[in-house]
Design a protein around this nucleic acid. Structure first.
Lengths: 111, 111
DNA sequence: CTATTTCATCGTAAAAGTACGATGATAAGG
DNA sequence: CCTTATCATCGTACTTTTACGATGAAATAG
């Protein structure tokens, strides 16, 4: 990146980009799908489903948690994750509000 | 990445991840915002707005075009881009359908 | 207390992303 | 034809991401 220019952009742009970044890997999409389907906190069962090593899955889970898309608690010897629907809703709205009402303008003129 | 495992996932997961990847940088979000706001094809005006070099903006534009989020045509000596609303709608639906109806299940049990 | 299980973290290696200046290609203007 | 303008591409440097095995920490089971 030479020198990170990320902070030269607005907070809204950064937030949306950070959210998208968390979704920007099929493994993390798959993890979210598993968590959403179960809706009860899962942990190493995810490792069994994905074609990835345990440490790699753990990294993806941490990335998702850092992005705020999932919550995690410690349950004895195992970790328990589930989707943070509130954050999900927030970003969905942010995404829609950013582009939806702009589409109302007169449609395509070129391209 | 050692060895790319991207192809070990379903096409839906890959598509959604690719879409998110295109949004996963504030500069590209900013570009889309500019294009959406004008709705007429813009080109190097984007360079004036962004705090990035021309070559860097060009790279981002190419990334967005490769992801299918924008269309581009050559207009004399300059390039003209605009948002591909159709693709945008497609991915928005894909995103919603992936997570929305799953939320209907009984809410949170832990975390 | 000693396994065992479960997960996080460390270390490492390879791949991809980000950014810039410089150069190249293409079309318009003189 | 020659210049200028506009944008893409190349080459390069640095950062970040991805992935794995190995190790470490914490709680349960015996």
């Amino acid at each position: 990146m030479a020198i990170a220019k990320t902070e030269s952009f607005s907070k809204k742009e950064q937030d949306l980009a950070a959210f998208a970044k968390a979704l920007a890997h099929p493994a993390r999409v798959a993890i979210l799908k598993v968590l959403a389907g179960k809706n009860e906190c899962v942990c190493g069962q995810i490792v069994d489903v994905l074609p990835l090593a345990q440490s790699t899955v753990s990294q993806h889970l941490i990335a998702l948690k850092a992005a705020g898309l999932i919550n995690g608690t410690v349950d004895g010897p195992r970790s328990c994750y589930c989707i943070n629907w509130k954050a999900f809703e927030k970003f969905k709205n942010e995404f829609n509000s950013l582009f939806d009402h702009l589409q109302v303008k007169d449609q395509q003129r070129c391209c």
